[in-house]
């Protein structure tokens, strides 16, 4: 079962690479933001998977939750920028 999680994790990494492509090469800042947001949501899952692989999910849940919150705040802050400063 551990291996299932491991490969799922690896697969998520590959998916992160796709998002990362958007984040790095995204033509506009908002594209990057989308990419990073996607990376964030994958990370939350990945953290839980790592916890499973370690066999200590209870410890990793906390991190994962903090992560979900703060990712949200960061994205919000970045998009808030555009509400105050017009233009790209």
């Amino acid at each position: 079962m551990q291996y299932v999680f491991l490969y799922a994790g690896l697969y998520l990494c590959i998916l992160m690479l796709l998002s990362l492509y958007r984040a790095v090469f995204g033509p506009t800042v908002l594209d990057r933001l989308v990419g990073v947001n996607a990376i964030g949501s994958k990370t939350v899952v990945l953290l839980i998977l790592i916890g499973l692989i370690y066999g200590r999910v209870d410890m990793f849940v906390d991190i994962s939750m903090a992560y979900a919150m703060l990712n949200f705040i960061a994205v919000l802050a970045a998009s808030r920028y555009f509400q105050k400063r017009k233009g790209l």
């Binding site: 990073v36 790592i50 991190i63």
Partner: peptide, 30 residues
């Protein structure tokens, strides 16, 4: 673009956090 750099830096931090979780450094990851 500085905003882009900031956002990418955020992504960089995500990755780092993952890395530390992988290495078992939960507190650091947190």
């Amino acid at each position: 673009d500085l905003l882009g750099a900031a956002i990418l830096f955020g992504a960089y931090s995500f990755m780092m956090c993952l890395l530390w979780a992988i290495m078992g450094a939960v507190d650091v990851a947190f």
